Amino acid sequence: MRLLLIRHGQTPSNVGHFLDTAWPGPGLTELGRRQAAALPTALAGEDIGALYASTLTRTQLTAAPLADERGLEVRIRDGIRELSAGDLEMRADEEAIREYLTTAFAWCAGNASRRMPGGETGVEALSRFDAVVAEAARLGTSGASSTVALVSHGAAIRVWAAARARNVTVEFAAEHRLDNTGVVVVEGMPDAGWTALSWAGAVVPPVAASGAVDAGPAGRALPGPSV
């Protein structure tokens, strides 16, 4: 099946570079609303049979125009919310952002038991995202849809893709930021594995690139984390 992993539109916290991951979170900026309104046209070539959003406000607002245009129900699931920042919540300093990114990318580099300070482990974060992907896959195998869109969050999408897509390395995910309403397209099934087809419109190569600068969920460019 085909999964469209879509980052939400711009929020005030993105503009301020805050690690804002708690429920319900902010709404969209004016630019974010325009980005959401543009999604139906951007995805006009995709035959989307089911649409998911996280429990955070910004993903639901982003999904709404697509749902309205396609006549789809938005399935709200906590499993695809942003990676919890824990004790780093609402910080915007480089030290906090670096700790967040280093921890998150360590999860997909094999250290999934590492805990975000005051937050969740990689096992917990990846398991909850996997559960929603598995539900989406069941829709596909039932014939209800072969393409499912999940409106989620930048760090959550990048970390899940690096952990689960066979051709996305940690280095590739760290190097390639995902701007607001950027889309990562993957194909496969939970039992057979996943292959990334495109990342924000660019083809994902069989062997990912290395070297890293990272914007992370706060949208600020930083040197890639050491994982």
Rank of each mutant, 00 (worst) to 15 (best):
M90A: 09
V151P: 04
V123A: 10
D93A: 03
H8C: 02
T141C: 00
A155R: 03
D87N: 14
A209G: 15
D179A: 15
M189E: 15
T195Y: 10
A50T: 01
A200Y: 10
W107S: 07
T121W: 03
T147W: 06
R81S: 08
I48S: 11
V203I: 15
V204A: 06
D47C: 03
L43P: 14
R7W: 01
L197V: 13
E73P: 08
N14Q: 07
G140I: 01
E120K: 13
E69D: 15
R177M: 12
L197G: 13
D78E: 15
I157Y: 01
Y52K: 00
F105Q: 06
V183L: 09
A144V: 11
A106R: 09
A173C: 13
L139V: 03
S113H: 02
E46K: 12
A112I: 01
R58H: 00
A131F: 11
G143T: 08
F105Y: 15
R58L: 02
A50M: 01
G216W: 04
S13G: 11
G16M: 15
A37S: 04
W160S: 11
S146F: 07
H17G: 09
W199K: 07
P205K: 02
G122N: 08
S210Q: 14
G118S: 07
V203W: 09
M116N: 12
P24Y: 10
F129Y: 15
A44M: 07
H17E: 13
